[in-house]
Write a protein that binds this DNA or RNA. Structure first.
Length: 576
DNA sequence: GCCGTTTTCGGCCCGACTGTTTTCAGTCG
């Protein structure tokens, strides 16, 4: 499913990695890294671009454009192939070990011929690194622990796990008298779909006792680094938590810095430099005099750089700086914008809460409309029947009388079969207020079959929303193979919404596909797919994903007033 | 390698911590 853009970007990034090992010019390496990000984030398919088209991509110049053309015609890049003969893949893999970078990787390869993580571990145990310049006892120790960590728990965690840890740390530290402000930052604030480590920021004039309290937290299994400005711990589950403490007056600059992404920060600092300023976590300064200009709020920092405040979900250097300069940033959808939820389950199928309890939870969220969409019969283990579904509909109509402010929609989650058909005939389907249709089986069909399957589902006049379209399970099952541009064209043409499922292990559609779909004019539905009362809280992850996809309220059908939504559900083009 | 309402050549983001060093390189974010 990897697009040409992703493969070309990976090759350019590999070129940067290999050059950093062989000791290439650091600025050239950064140029490759920037270009790799730009190519991966470029909306157009690079395989259809010529030299001039490629050079229009920011940070892609003559030399890199030619390398991409090389990839377009040969499927690889000649310089990468050449460097691979000099530096074995295993040496590049060494740099994935925490505390071991390109310089040390090259040293062990050149001096000892080590070209894999296993060989390195073996060499350390045999004492073969002794006497190697720059490698002392502590370094050996750190590498061994780094290897251990990488093998056991070095994986990224899901958003809800990271959010739970962050909430606990922020709550504990906020209770300390020395702490004036405390919040999480980093990739969690940007709502990335998985989190490598949790970043927490605190403002204080007296950091030492805070750091001591931090390392003494029950969840701190190990202290990784310890200073008065920065301290890192690791939880017993292997998740690293970084705490940075800054003076209260530096809060805004620090929050901007520690939210990242690194690529976004590089851009903002470059803008500062060009304006004769210097931006760091302590503030925006005059480059010559060193005088502080602003630092208290993120707003001030961006404003002084000539930019509007940029939402954290956009801070990936994938076009937000350019959009900000032109004052074309989208007004992103928020949890508060949502009037309804169009996908949920009850204990009639695999939910664990009753219809009554789920509806009460929806009412507590302040929703104006709410769809109950239990599974359809072809998901055989759920034992759905026509009779059960019609009986549920009666209960929904009864229950409606108790909720004058919440319109209940009776729906179902259909199963898209391998040919693109769904569970019921048109007559029965017409009785539902809304139908979500999802892929629940035959995940490994080839791209052509899967594309046809999804397009046919969109073309069904009774299918309103494609549920969790890629069917991925983060860390467990990859996305299905499909020609997504073809699917999105069909969705836009037929007035079928793409779901953004809020489950932390789904987040489906993913943000990059959301941005692609939006370019075709596709509409979206941000839903919980709740199977229990607690799942209603997951909506913030779905909204975060929608924000990362640059969506406005108008793009999201369940922000619309009910009448506009009903027109969309008629699939006659009236609301599009 | 890229880029330019100061520049087509000379710049290129900034700081914290660790470890092996006698003043700093490497790594990380």
């Amino acid at each position: 499913m990897a697009r040409a853009n992703d493969e070309a970007a990976a090759l350019i990034q590999e070129l940067a990695d290999l050059l950093s090992i062989t000791g290439g010019d650091a600025f050239k390496i950064r140029a490759y890294e920037k270009a790799a990000r730009a190519i991966a984030g470029h909306p157009d398919d690079i395989s259809g671009l010529d030299l001039a088209g490629l050079r229009k991509i920011p940070t892609v110049g003559e030399a890199i454009a030619k390398k991409v053309l090389d990839y377009n015609t040969t499927g690889t890049i000649r310089q990468v192939e050449e460097l691979r003969t000099q530096i074995p893949a295993g040496v590049r893999a060494l740099t994935a070990i925490p505390t071991l970078g390109p310089k040390k990787a090259l040293a062990v390869y050149e001096e000892l011929g080590i070209s894999s993580v296993d060989e390195l571990a073996e060499a350390i145990k045999e004492g073969r690194l002794r006497g190697l310049k720059g490698f002392g006892a502590k370094t050996e120790d750190n590498i061994l622990r780094g290897i251990e960590l990488m093998r056991s728990s070095g994986e990224r965690v899901l958003l809800d796990v990271a959010a739970g840890v962050a909430d606990e740390v922020v709550a504990a530290l906020s209770a300390l008298p020395q702490v004036e402000r405390c919040a999480h930052a980093g990739s969690l604030r940007r709502m990335r779909e998985t989190i490598g480590d949790v970043d927490v920021l605190a403002a204080s004039t007296d950091p030492h006792p805070i750091m001591e309290a931090f390392t003494a937290l029950p969840l701190a299994a190990e202290v990784v680094v310890a200073g008065d400005k920065k301290t890192s711990i690791r939880t017993d589950r292997g998740l690293q938590v970084d705490l940075r403490i800054v003076p209260p007056e530096a809060w805004g600059a620090a929050l901007q810095y520690f939210t990242g992404s690194q690529a976004h920060n590089i851009r903002t600092r470059e803008i500062a430099v060009k304006a004769g300023l210097k931006l760091s976590e302590y503030g925006l300064f005059d480059a010559d005099s060193g005088d502080l200009i602003v630092s208290r709020t993120e707003d001030e920092v961006y404003e002084r750089l000539g930019l509007p405040w940029i939402h954290p979900a956009l801070r990936e250097d994938t076009g937000e700086i350019e959009a900000a300069r032109k004052d074309e940033l989208p007004r992103l959808v928020t949890v508060e914008d949502l009037r309804g939820d169009l996908h949920s389950h009850t204990d009639l199928t695999d939910g664990i809460a009753s219809l009554e309890d789920m509806v009460a939870a929806a009412a507590d969220r302040g929703l104006e409309y709410y769809a109950i969409t239990d599974h359809a019969p072809n998901l055989f283990m759920q034992r759905m029947t026509d009779e059960k579904m019609l009986a549920q509909r009666e209960r929904v109509r009864e229950l409606q009388k108790e909720y004058p402010g919440l319109v209940l929609l009776h729906g179902t989650e259909l199963n898209i079969d391998p040919d693109g058909g769904v569970d019921w005939d048109a007559g029965f389907l017409a009785g539902f207020d809304i139908c979500v249709a999802s892929v629940h089986s035959h995940f490994t069909q080839d791209e052509a079959e899967m594309t046809r399957r999804l397009v046919r589902a969109c073309e069904n006049p009774h299918v309103h929303v494609i549920g969790h379209p890629t069917a991925r399970s983060i860390g467990r099952r990859p996305a299905v193979n499909a020609d997504w541009d073809e699917v999105f064209r069909a969705a836009a043409r037929t007035g079928t919404a793409m779901e953004i499922d809020s489950f932390p292990d789904r987040l489906d559609l993913p943000a990059d596909l959301i941005r692609r779909a939006k370019r075709f004019g596709v509409r979206f539905s941000v839903d919980t797919d709740a199977h229990s009362l607690g799942h209603h809280r997951n909506i913030r992850y779905g909204v975060g994903t929608a924000q990362r996809g640059w969506l406005t309220p108008d793009d999201v059908i369940n922000t619309w007033p009910l009448e506009r939504l009903r027109a969309f559900l008629r699939k006659d083009g009236g609301a599009r």
